[in-house]
Computed example of a mutant assay.
Amino acid sequence: MTTTQWTAEPTTSGQYAEVNGVNLYYETHGAGRPMILLHGGLGSGEMFGPILPTLADRHQVILVDLQGHGRTADVDRPLDITLMADDVAALIDHLGLEKPDVVGYSLGGGVALLVAIRHPDKVGRLVSASANIRRDAIYPEMLAQQGQVTGAAAEFMKDTPMYELYQRVAPHPEDFPRLLDKIGAAMAKDFDYTEQVRGLQVPTLVVAADADMAPPSHYVEVFNLLDGGLRDGGWAGEGRPKGGHALAILPGLTHYNLFLSPLFAAVTLAFLDKES
């Protein structure tokens, strides 16, 4: 499976919600307990096209296009996961949802994590995939590549799925260089959410590829902060993390195809649909 397969035509018409000064685009698919699904950087909800039918077969899936991405136009503020997390919390209120599960990948995984940290009363369960809680956990060569992301790179990205998607769906297709500038500025900022994660109250599944943007040990570190991987689990699971947290390192995947994988859909559903 390659990244060129990561868009799909929406099967329902989307809607907009005015939250925090952002005209946030979202689509609703399927029925069941609500799941808010958040895409990666430079993408949109359409990224999940290949696994959406599997998720929507068991849940009402609300695909959100985050600020400046997909069909949501940019606004005059930085691309900041804290602000985007507050947008998602406001959308939960706007839709009148009762503690939906929140699932996110990469940028969306960071946003999902911040929703659970900042608004724990609004979230049922959390799945945070391919999201790093410390900038210095990312491989040095990847940090160097991120440092080259500016609007000037737009010309060189014209054959990429990110550019194709943006040109097809964005309200202002000419803003792609601006999005690159903002993404680059966001990635250049240092961050460390260690202490916030340590106090996380929402049952959380940490997901990563076995060849992700940071080493598997980083995602084990996150699990450790959540009381996981510190003792034998016990015959009856009595030694498992007290908060109901879990960890999944998915084999044979990378940061760039995890969100397409049936494995990602399977572990997400197994965690969200767990009885206790």
Rank of each mutant, 00 (worst) to 15 (best):
S276E: 15
V64T: 06
D65P: 02
M187I: 01
V88Q: 01
G109T: 02
L24M: 13
Y16L: 07
V111M: 14
M213W: 03
V207I: 03
I249D: 03
N224G: 13
H39Q: 08
H59P: 12
A17L: 07
H172R: 15
A185W: 07
Y256R: 13
A8Y: 03
I81N: 12
E141C: 06
G252Y: 09
T7A: 06
G239Q: 11
Y163W: 15
G109R: 01
G43V: 00
D101F: 07
D80Q: 11
H255T: 04
G184T: 09
I81G: 04
L225N: 01
D87A: 10
P173H: 15
P50I: 01
V123A: 13
K122I: 02
D190E: 15
M1Q: 14
Q196P: 03
Q201G: 13
G234D: 07
V206L: 07
I138R: 02
L230S: 12
E27S: 07
H29R: 03
N132S: 15
L179V: 09
A85S: 15
V102E: 01
L63T: 02
L225Q: 06
Y139A: 14
P251W: 06
P161L: 07
P120I: 08
G239N: 12
K242M: 14
M162F: 09
V61S: 00
V75A: 15
T82I: 09
V206K: 04
A248F: 08
A8K: 04
F271W: 13
V115W: 07
D76P: 08
G104Y: 02
Y16D: 03
N257T: 11
V102M: 00
L205R: 10
L230T: 10
R33E: 13
G40V: 00
L258T: 12
E46T: 07
G237S: 09
L260H: 02
T82G: 14
D80P: 09
Y105C: 04
I51N: 02
L52M: 15
V169W: 01
P241W: 01
L66D: 08
P171I: 12
Q67E: 12
V61G: 06
L258D: 09
R168S: 15
I138F: 07
L38N: 05
S276I: 05
R231S: 10
F264L: 09
D210S: 11
M35P: 00
P161R: 02
Y139P: 08
M35Q: 01
H69D: 01
L42Q: 01
G108K: 00
P120S: 15
R71P: 00
P34I: 01
V64A: 09
G110A: 05
R125G: 10
G45Q: 04
A246W: 01
Q167N: 13
H218D: 13
I133W: 08
L260D: 03
L83M: 10
A209F: 06
H245K: 05
P177N: 13
G244L: 04
P120N: 14
L66R: 04
T160G: 08
V123M: 14
E9D: 15
T254D: 10
M213T: 04
G43P: 00
G21S: 14
